[in-house]
Design a protein around this nucleic acid. Structure first.
Lengths: 339, 339
DNA sequence: CTGAAAGCGCTTACAG
DNA sequence: CTGAAAGCGCTTACAG
């Protein structure tokens, strides 16, 4: 393997000094180089297949052109890929490359990883969690511009990008009310958390906005998987005054609602409307009927977070909470109730 | 923001020369430094929170400690995250960091991305596609050690890591035969391809191994989505001599088989056994009954590819095709046929 | 309009 | 056992 050409090789071939090559190839502002010289330099660079060495350049300029993506669990959910892809795309568009690290939620590993990333001179970091929750940034990140992704800081003024859970829930309820529903249930997770709290707030506020009374019996807490959704739906459907529509905390719970409905001969959407949350890959589209749901905009969140980080690197101030809308995806599980 | 400490700062604090600091911190082999000196150096480094600059180091050593992960479509499938995560983990274990780039299958963008990665001095590349297919490596990659991931090279001797499709299919058929099935259908994709070809070969060879005749009517070609699976199953179930078991090309087709069976009052697994392929996130576990399927070992593939690449960087020869086993995940859709 | 020189922060033979 | 010096490949004031 022959050695890669250096700037000096290009300079010699073009018959100029290395500094001139640098100025030409970087289009350095304010530098005056004759057009003919520029052409010769560019031709020489192309001929040699010259690729500048970012290390040498970074050593002088103190810029690496790289950003860190630090995730607690990169895979395990189909969302992670979208988050990463969105961030990568926006980084690329701004001329940055992404360095990826997965900490598995291990604090020790995380510290070593951040150290390694800082050695590599990353200019900033995206700190991502795989579902919306509150986190404390590790100390090693101090002094490195950082934007949180799908996570909110326990304290501090850092920029963080999260789904607009409340507006999403409001839109789901709005859709159901618009279709004519008045008894709308909310099937939610057992535990509190940033996502479920805001979704419930959206559910309640939208009901109130329409002058609909909040019936506590229509809010059921269960485990946020399909079995939990099935149990919750069973309670609701077997009650004396069942709801005509169910809004679920996530799509997996909606799967359970489908099962409970099928077991009782309750048809979706004729007898019961269902709206989920997340737009879980394949699942929501493969249910019969397709599940109407609020999409979690992971790709868009990744893009926004990278852009916000780059804006800070360019001298901008942290912008605090950045809410990303969750679009309604209509598929067929929500329809007008029986007359 | 105060400047990061340099090696000179550590040297001054410890009262030694920078070269001594380097030798101590890198545990340079064959260097003799007094224990007390070592302790002083380490203490000074810790006190200052010294993190060596990889650029300066890389400029001298010509090693960056980074690997490229080049993907055609990073997200869009839940598998991508697993592939990336596996690669990242194995890279990390060997002291490498991963730089990520998504080309969206755009050749021009790919070329620019590879150039950017080479500028960043990546030592090698993982070239990943999001499903098993044959690819031609772009020219810009010439001279950079590269391992293909979930892809096979159209030509050349590069190392590539792919699922053992044929063995997976054989194991699926083996499981069905073991349960007592004799009429086993294969529902496959319309088009040929590395994955489907090998799965069919496995299906046929395993039947033959058990002395079972291949009935062409039991091999149905359809679009590889749930609607296609449903149509294929309809044909099979409505035939005069329907199969007692169906092996599908992927899990989405299996969803369709479930639907066709339900529509006909055919119970799974009592009346019909089904085995899928892929172990698609959530889908396979959320079907009722849970889908027995062959898992695509993406995480493991990512790990293997990164390890193979690192082995080449360490002077090893390319190893050609690396097959990764697809484990059988038993969930409940395969059972003995009616007596 | 172009070139010579210094320096970014390390590592590595080499001297002593 | 430890230090001085050169050099990795760039960029950037500065001279001319």
């Amino acid at each position: 393997m022959t050695r890669r050409p250096r700037i000096r090789d290009v300079a010699e071939l073009a018959g100029v000094a290395p500094s001139t090559v640098s100025v030409v190839l970087n289009d350095t502002a304010g530098a005056r180089v004759a057009g003919s010289t520029r052409d010769r330099v560019r031709a020489a660079a192309a001929e040699l297949g010259y690729v500048p060495n970012s290390f040498a350049r970074g050593l002088r300029t103190r810029r690496s052109g790289t950003l860190a993506f630090i995730g607690d669990v990169i895979a395990t959910t189909p969302y992670a890929g979208e988050l990463i892809q969105g961030a990568q795309e926006a980084a690329w568009e701004a001329g940055y490359l992404l360095m990826l690290v997965n900490t598995g939620g291990d604090a020790q590993l995380e510290e070593r990883a951040v150290r390694a990333l800082r050695r590599q001179q990353v200019e900033g970091a995206l700190y991502a969690t795989m579902y919306h929750r509150a986190v404390t940034l590790p100390e090693v990140l101090d002094g490195l511009p950082t934007v949180l992704l799908d996570a909110r800081p326990v304290s501090g003024t850092a920029t963080f990008v999260v789904p607009d859970e409340q507006a999403g829930a409001e839109d789901a309820v709005e859709e159901l009310v618009r279709l004519g529903h008045r008894r709308i249930a909310f099937v939610r997770d057992l535990h509190d958390g940033p996502a479920v709290d805001r979704r419930q707030r959206g559910y309640e506020s939208r009901l109130a906005a329409h002058g609909l009374e909040l019936d506590e019996r229509l809010v059921v807490r269960e485990r946020s998987d399909s079995a939990g959704g099935e149990r919750a739906a069973a309670v609701l459907l077997d009650a004396p005054d069942p709801p005509t529509a169910v809004f679920t905390f996530n799509d997996q719970m909606a799967i359970g609602v489908y099962r409970a409905a099928a077991a009782r001969g309750v048809r979706i959407p004729q007898d019961l409307s269902v709206i989920g949350f997340d737009d879980l890959y394949v699942v929501s589209s493969e249910l019969t009927p397709g599940l109407t749901t609020m999409a979690l905009p992971h790709r868009e969140m990744g893009r926004l977070a990278a852009r916000a980080l780059i804006a800070e690197l360019d001298g901008g101030e942290p912008t605090g909470e950045q809410l990303v809308p969750c679009p309604l995806v209509r598929r067929g599980s929500a329809a007008p109730p029986h007359p």
